[in-house]
């Protein structure tokens, strides 16, 4: 009995000391981590919709909490008026969920840009979705009709060419974008 208490006490002291060290490091790094995360997110938003003076998170206004694909809605303002919308969407790819930012312009009703935030696709195949040339395939597409993934060079305005040997990934990204597009058309184009 004595022995058990002694051992337990020793473990307690060890854990307390280690915990102290960890919480001290946490106190030092927490503000830096928060700042860099905020910066990364802001930069991502600006990359997808560059022509904005202010970007506001209006997720609560537009989305119900159980939406499966749409995760976040950010509205871009210029001179006090909404000019663009940036969605964070999450869709299921080949190796797990793919988180994508997609921006729409209200005036021209087109897709401005997309950006893959995180993914677990196969390196060298689906992971090519993060390359700028894949985002370029979406830029300027009209937001009035659903996009369709094709394997050849696109003929129609609403067709997007898939990444070679990564059709599942291309379709997943496009599915997320289509969900956002639908929401954008209903809430921002037809409502005004």
């Amino acid at each position: 009995m004595r022995e058990a208490i002694k051992l337990g006490f020793f473990l307690l002291i060890t854990c307390a000391l280690v915990g102290l060290g960890v919480s001290y490091t946490n106190a030092l790094t927490a503000p830096i981590i928060a700042e860099s995360e905020k910066l990364v997110q802001e930069q991502g938003l600006m990359e997808v919709y560059s022509d904005a003076e202010e970007i506001k998170d209006e997720t609560e206004k537009y989305l119900s909490s159980e939406d499966s694909v749409l995760k976040q809605v950010n509205v871009a303002y210029k001179a006090g008026k909404p000019v663009g919308v940036i969605y964070t969407v999450e869709s299921k790819g080949y190796g797990g969920s793919i988180k994508t930012l997609v921006g729409f312009d209200i005036v021209s009703c087109t897709i401005t840009n997309i950006k893959i935030l995180s993914h677990t696709e196969t390196p060298g195949l689906g992971a090519q979705a993060t390359e700028p040339w894949f985002a370029e395939r979406f830029q300027g597409k009209s937001a009035t009709a659903d996009l369709e993934v094709v394997k050849q060079t696109p003929q129609d305005g609403n067709e997007v060419q898939a990444i070679t040997a990564a059709t599942v990934t291309s379709k997943a990204v496009t599915l997320g974008i289509n969900e956002a597009r639908n929401h954008f058309q209903v809430n921002f184009i037809e409502a005004f």
Partner: peptide, 10 residues
């Protein structure tokens, strides 16, 4: 945990 926090920050 310490190195994890440091890497996350820097």
């Amino acid at each position: 945990t310490i190195i994890e926090l440091i890497m996350k920050a820097y």
